[in-house]
Design a protein around this nucleic acid. Structure first.
Length: 519
RNA sequence: GUCCCUGUAGCUCAGUGGACAGAGCGCCCCGCUGCGGUCGGGGAGGUCGGGUGUUCAAAUCACCCCAGGGACGCCA
């Protein structure tokens, strides 16, 4: 990584207390990398660098009011292709995680109905974030929490619907499921038990959809009900009681979360004796802690933002020493401002979106926007835009690469014999410049989790590749009349094309977007 | 009332302290259409919601205001 090399140089020459960040200049004329310092410091650093110019730097320019612009040597850039070809799928891979155990919980849709377009955000973001963290060396576990506790209100409501005593969560699909499992339901007397059985069926369908259609593989499907079965809930209540963190009020048992940063205390056990959702969640998170995770990430919808403070308080009470992060995916609303509601059955299903636009467009659609942006969703617009979606631009560039490589009939490139110095065209060098940025982007995104930057990168890479394709013909038409020099150039360009292919693959693998060889 | 998120081009959104503010779509013009045209180049279009402040430097940070969405339940 060039940035790291530059940083090392700066650390050597800059005053120790000076802060700086390395940027990509907005214009080509400003070099490849740029750092800003107060003018006199910049001047001083420049003169020190100039005295002993590192071999990979062509020149350093000082531009008022204090930009130090670094120009990377062309032959250094050209050599990088070799590195990409050798590293292959590991080009960009880092070891930030050092095999640290990390849990990512996402989607966790209630088993009361199918996934809607709001669930899509957490689904793709969580899966891609997991891909990324694996890529940078963490030991990642993907978890899905199923709120199927028999004693919960939502399961009871669902049970009423199952037994024909209510209409909550009712949709055409739900009616079909109820009809199908009717023989089973007939033997059931309580609403809670009926709801639990119906939830099992719904969950089965959702799970199948997630694995088959969304192609997301969870390591753990965690059932809330098991916390009750295994007596963990009850143990948690007495544990918290022994720590003197609970008290009785209005017939309910409360947890003193306000002592740990929450706005108010929270109910653990309701006055009717039933445990709250919060109590389950504390117990569930304690289970995660017990499984040895050093970092725990939850990805929730915006409707759970009120749950953040109390959960953070709970993690303190549980004495979790690792990192605990909650990411909130902002609301997805329907065009015209109509609200999605699962209980009212007013929603667009994720499977309908995927049927309309395909999984790749859907994934890109979600991942290209930051999590904190509220999305207004218009299915017609999504359909219309899908035909001109940037994801096709990326896939097309990749298909083109594949076509060139297939036609070249070169099975294996002997990179030792390639003369990379022949790649001197501006479009060739620009493509290389973009390729070598990839590990730097990965490094950034692994720290700030702004996955949309990888989408932007993919688009940019496709763009510079297309410019290269336009300006620099790879394969010659009359290959039997090739001069030796031309042959060498073709080989060098093929190597560049192959390295571009590798970077496309590494980038899109993290995003979970497919790269077809033909379109 | 308190708290969270958002406000950037006609639309959907990038850009989170630096150099004339970007992309895709839409609109207009031109070129190429010969390794695969889902192509390339150019143009129109922006007081970055408003204000004050911090800074050599603010779309970016702080504070205030306005607007939209969300949360404030012994639902999940």
């Amino acid at each position: 990584m060039i940035q790291k090399k530059i940083k090392k140089i700066i650390f050597q020459y800059a005053p120790p207390d000076v802060e700086f960040s390395i940027n990509y200049p907005p214009q080509r004329e400003y070099g490849d990398y740029s750092i800003f310092f107060p003018f006199n410091i910049a001047k001083d650093i420049k003169s020190k660098i100039d005295k002993n110019l590192p071999s990979f730097i062509n020149k350093v320019e000082l531009v008022s009011p204090g930009f130090l612009n670094f120009y990377i040597k062309e032959d250094f850039l050209q050599k990088q292709i070799k590195g990409i070809l050798e590293k292959k799928e590991n080009f960009g891979r880092l070891n930030l995680g050092k095999r640290k155990k990390i849990s990512i919980e996402f989607i966790s849709a209630n088993p009361t109905g199918p996934l809607h377009i709001g669930n899509g955000r957490g689904a793709f973001f969580g899966d891609s974030l997991a891909n990324l963290l694996e890529y940078v060396g963490f030991d990642v576990t993907r978890e899905y929490y199923i709120n199927n506790s028999k004693v919960s209100c939502q399961i009871k409501e669902l049970g009423k619907t199952a037994l024909g005593k209510g209409t909550s969560y009712e949709t055409q699909r739900l009616k079909e499921i109820i009809k199908r499992i009717n023989p089973k339901l007939k033997k059931i007397k309580t609403e809670n038990e009926a709801g639990f059985i119906l939830a099992k069926e719904i969950q089965k369908e959702n799970q199948k959809f997630i694995e088959k259609e969304l192609k997301i593989k969870f390591d753990i499907w965690f059932e809330e009900e098991n916390l009750f079965k295994e007596n963990k809930i009850q143990k948690m209540v007495s544990f918290l009681g022994k720590k003197n963190l609970t008290y009785q009020k209005d017939g309910a048992i409360w947890l003193k979360t306000s002592k740990f940063g929450d706005f108010k205390d929270e109910v653990l056990i309701r006055s009717d004796g039933s445990p709250s959702y919060f109590l389950s969640d504390i117990t569930y998170h304690n289970d995660k802690i017990k499984r040895g995770f050093k970092k725990i990430i939850d990805i929730w919808g915006a409707d759970h933002q009120g749950h953040i403070k109390r959960m953070e308080a709970a993690m303190k009470i549980l004495n979790f020493k690792g990192e605990f992060n909650i990411f909130i995916a902002q609301m997805v609303s329907l065009a015209g401002g109509e609200k999605l509601s699962k209980r009212k059955g007013n929603l667009i299903l994720l499977e309908d979106l995927i049927k309309e636009v395909g999984i790749d467009v859907a994934r890109y659609f979600y991942l290209s926007k930051s999590l904190s942006t509220q999305m207004e969703f218009d299915l017609n617009l999504a359909k219309k835009q899908s035909e001109k979606n940037p994801v096709y631009y990326i896939q097309y560039a990749y298909a083109r690469i594949h076509s060139i490589l297939a036609k070249s009939k070169i099975k294996k490139i002997e990179y030792k014999n390639i003369n990379y110095k022949l790649l001197t065209h501006n479009s060739e060098l620009n493509l290389i410049r973009e390729l070598v940025k990839f590990p730097e982007i990965i490094d950034d995104v692994a720290r700030d989790y702004q996955l949309q930057r990888l989408c932007e990168y993919g688009k940019k890479l496709a763009e510079v590749f297309n410019q290269f394709y336009r300006d620099c013909r790879v394969l010659q038409l009359n290959s039997n009349k090739l001069q030796v020099k031309d042959k060498k150039l073709t080989e060098a360009r093929l190597a560049l094309v192959l390295s571009t292919k590798i970077v496309f693959e590494n980038c899109m693998r993290i995003l979970g977007i497919s790269l077809p060889k033909k379109m």
